[in-house]
Simulated assay, not measured.
Amino acid sequence: MNVEADALRYDDVNQTSVFTGRVVVTKGSIVIRGAKVTVKQDPEGYHSGVVTSEPGKPAFFRQKRDGVDEFMEGEAETIEYDGRADRVKFIGRAEMRRLRGGSIADETSGAVITYNNATDQFSVDGAPGGATPANPGGRVRATLAPRGSAAAPAAPASAPATQLRPSTTMGGERR
Rank of each mutant, 00 (worst) to 15 (best):
residue 2 N to R: 10
residue 6 D to H: 09
residue 8 L to R: 10
residue 9 R to C: 02
residue 10 Y to K: 09
residue 10 Y to D: 05
residue 14 N to I: 09
residue 14 N to Q: 14
residue 18 V to M: 05
residue 20 T to M: 07
residue 20 T to Q: 13
residue 23 V to A: 06
residue 23 V to T: 08
residue 30 I to Q: 14
residue 38 T to G: 01
residue 38 T to N: 09
residue 44 E to R: 08
residue 45 G to H: 04
residue 47 H to D: 11
residue 47 H to W: 07
residue 55 P to G: 00
residue 57 K to F: 00
residue 60 F to C: 09
residue 61 F to S: 00
residue 62 R to P: 03
residue 65 R to E: 13
residue 66 D to H: 08
residue 69 D to G: 07
residue 73 E to A: 06
residue 74 G to L: 02
residue 75 E to C: 04
residue 76 A to G: 10
residue 78 T to E: 10
residue 79 I to K: 04
residue 81 Y to N: 05
residue 81 Y to V: 11
residue 92 G to M: 05
residue 94 A to R: 02
residue 95 E to Y: 06
residue 96 M to E: 08
residue 99 L to Y: 03
residue 101 G to M: 04
residue 102 G to D: 07
residue 103 S to I: 08
residue 105 A to D: 13
residue 106 D to N: 15
residue 108 T to S: 15
residue 110 G to M: 03
residue 110 G to H: 00
residue 115 Y to A: 07
residue 116 N to Y: 12
residue 120 D to L: 06
residue 122 F to L: 14
residue 122 F to I: 08
residue 124 V to Y: 02
residue 125 D to P: 00
residue 125 D to G: 07
residue 128 P to I: 01
residue 128 P to N: 06
residue 129 G to Q: 02
residue 130 G to S: 15
residue 132 T to K: 06
residue 134 A to W: 00
residue 136 P to G: 01
residue 140 V to L: 05
residue 148 G to R: 14
residue 149 S to K: 12
residue 150 A to W: 12
residue 152 A to Q: 11
residue 152 A to I: 12
residue 154 A to C: 01
residue 154 A to N: 01
residue 156 P to I: 00
residue 157 A to D: 11
residue 159 A to M: 07
residue 165 R to H: 15
residue 166 P to S: 03
residue 167 S to V: 09
residue 169 T to H: 05
residue 170 M to P: 14
residue 170 M to G: 15
residue 171 G to N: 14
residue 173 E to Q: 14
